[in-house]
Amino acid sequence: MCGRYASIKAPADLADEFRAVDATDGAATADYNVAPTKQIVTVVERHPRDAEGTPDPDRTERTLRMVRWGLVPSWSKDPKSGARMINARSESAATKPAFRRALNSRRCLIPADGWFEWQRGPEHKQPYYTHYADGRSLAMAGLWEFWKPKDDPDEEYPNGLVTASVLTTEAVGPLAQIHDRMPLVLPSDAWDAWLDPDTGSDAESVASLIAPPSLELIGQLQLRPVSPLVNSVRNNGAQLLEELPPEEVREPVQLDLLAGPNPS
């Protein structure tokens, strides 16, 4: 699963990296301990609409937007349900009522500097941090939805609520030593097809995009044990990403089994 991650790059840098326009309106700030129900940065691509709300089928616009982490289906009566839907299993998203519409036409990328996962040991859970060795952003596959109350206007969300989930997949290679699930990380050559709002008309195309990451991609990642301070959402800051000294690692794994260094 993916329950915490770090998102610390400035929106301007993310916009450049993902070839998008920054539409976060200054709401995005560095966060070393992103937790469910927080506002997060996403990359979305939509057909622009004219003054009457009609989409232009010949053009798309890619933007950075803020949404709440925890998908609320459009048919939900209560937006609080999103707290239980921070992740969507890639293997079953196409058949789940909460996710299948979003998988067809509301896919997004969720930029991250890295994600946290906890290895369960006999007595303790040891957090690990996984990131690209060269420092570029991870592109986690995501789904987004728009919710608004069906009857009376909602006092808390009078304009509706936009939410998102992170797609997860089976952990690949050495990452399975930590947990059996991981976020679905997409390589850059898959971004355009994933974000294309029209790709959903071809079920086979979508299925090919949600395959587990390749061993080549996994080989570009680094994994390190970090402080259990990350366990609390109240803790934040660069210290959460620092490697834990070997003598303080509660449930060590054989990190030498990880794939090699980032290829040139």
Rank of each mutant, 00 (worst) to 15 (best):
K96E: 14
F99Q: 14
A102E: 10
S105M: 06
S105K: 03
S105Q: 04
S105C: 05
R106C: 11
R107P: 06
P111N: 09
D113H: 08
W115K: 04
R120I: 07
K125E: 00
Q126K: 02
Q126S: 09
P127V: 01
T130Q: 05
H131L: 06
H131Q: 12
D134R: 03
D134S: 09
R136M: 04
L138M: 03
A141I: 03
A141N: 12
G142D: 11
L143Q: 05
L143A: 06
L143G: 06
L143N: 02
E145F: 08
E145H: 08
W147Q: 00
W147G: 00
K148D: 04
K150G: 02
D151A: 00
P153N: 01
E156M: 14
P158D: 07
V162F: 04
T163R: 06
T163F: 06
A164C: 13
A164Q: 09
A164E: 08
V166G: 07
V166P: 02
L167C: 13
T168N: 12
T169W: 09
V172T: 15
L175D: 13
A176F: 08
A176M: 14
I178F: 12
I178N: 15
H179R: 05
D180H: 15
M182C: 10
V185W: 04
D189A: 01
D189L: 00
W191F: 01
W194F: 05
L195Y: 01
D198N: 07
G200Y: 11
G200P: 15
S201K: 15
D202A: 07
D202P: 07
E204N: 10
E204H: 12
S205H: 10
V206N: 13
A207S: 15
A207P: 12
S208T: 09
S208M: 11
A211H: 11
P213C: 08
P213W: 08
S214V: 02
E216L: 04
E216G: 10
L217C: 00
L217M: 11
L217E: 02
I218K: 06
Q220Y: 11
